[in-house]
Design a protein around this nucleic acid. Sequence first.
DNA 1: TGTGTCATTTGACCTGAATCAAGTGAACAT
DNA 2: ATGTTCACTTGATTCAGGTCAAATGACACA
Lengths: 232, 232
Amino acid sequence: MRSKDIPLVRELDLFAEMAESSFDALMQAAFLQRFPPQVQLITEGEPADFLYVMVEGSVELFANGNGRETTIEIINPVATFILAAALRDQAYLMSARTIENARILMIPSETVRAVFASDAAFARAVVRELSGRFRTVVKALKNQKLRNAVERLANYLLRKESEQGGEGTVTLEIDKRTLAALLGMTPENLSRAFGTLKPYGVVVKGREIRLTKTADLTALAKPSPLIDDPAS
Amino acid sequence: MRSKDIPLVRELDLFAEMAESSFDALMQAAFLQRFPPQVQLITEGEPADFLYVMVEGSVELFANGNGRETTIEIINPVATFILAAALRDQAYLMSARTIENARILMIPSETVRAVFASDAAFARAVVRELSGRFRTVVKALKNQKLRNAVERLANYLLRKESEQGGEGTVTLEIDKRTLAALLGMTPENLSRAFGTLKPYGVVVKGREIRLTKTADLTALAKPSPLIDDPAS
DNA sequence: TGTGTCATTTGACCTGAATCAAGTGAACAT
DNA sequence: ATGTTCACTTGATTCAGGTCAAATGACACA
């Protein structure tokens, strides 16, 4: 890895508190790679040779089955993906492709496991990250099982609006086809769900969404911190 | 905790390799409790004061929302539940109730975090457990998003049949209403799904199910190790 | 043996979401 | 400007699954 990138990585939560020597061990084996959009990085079922850390850009995690494909999660900086597979030395459960230009740190799984065993601060950081990812997936499962399509969309919009500053506007970071897969519906149905939300002040113009009646939308969405709050 | 129970607990994967002193620290703070069926142990949203370890019996993890309730997972020995919440000192994302008579080890979260920080072998075991739970939830999400109701039931039956010895019989360990919630459908629809599977050799008699044409059922279910294999 | 309770099943119907097919519209190249 | 392409939308229809209501059936208990 180029030495100019090292301070950037060192500041990431996952690495901030570990011993210098452990960090060096990781970095010696790691490389920070740039990828163009729409590159498939990993394929489900293959052995987990690397731990991936999103440094810049975004990645879509998806899975295939039954001739269908679904999006599990969108990964943004700073988070890891396929940490669980790397720690267990098992196959990836999900595939991954870049959405936009991305910089991704790749660390051989074996190195991760070795440093995990020897550096307690890193072990704590790994557990913090892993337990966070666990809770994210549980929330996604609750979202999917307890809500219908329109409610999932409404909550998604409200969450993004608040992440993007609470100014009543949302810029979708993914195309609508991917959003549909993420929300567990077809693109056609997503389009209709936007239509259903029009009376609740949702104005769609391409990827720019304006929320003009957030109170009404919130009443419909009934957001719950135990599903929608990323921090909880 | 009564000293006669300690060897039993010590053998659990989670505790087997840790230092004696760390184990003692955990056990001093822990207690092993018996519960009758249908006792609600924890409620989502409450702070995670304890880590729970299933020693005997079974527990249902479920969540509420939108006036609905859904089952996330059934926990059998030996596994932990709400490990992530305990490690992060956050609120439970799920509620838990016993299904049958259960013996459950309860360890204060604070003690877990302290021992985790000081005992590397325990830290490794915790990560093994946590990453396993993570993968289980990802599989559940894929199952829910990539399959229809009949396919989910078919795969559930095949998995249980193989867990129960591959003799072509399955004994349901939960009532059908809970099974329906676990599989993400209504009890009525579960009943119809069993009807749909009759031509595939699924014979239902109360909680006893016979699978007389596992080949046909497998062809319908199209099981995938990346969803259905608990070990992968 | 009856009676109540509760889980499950069945039937009729409805609705949310998928599918199939055609249309629109913006971005880009010609 | 004019196609061409691609993403998205719209319409018509079908289908899976949900809802509501009633029937059945097993078990516990009087």
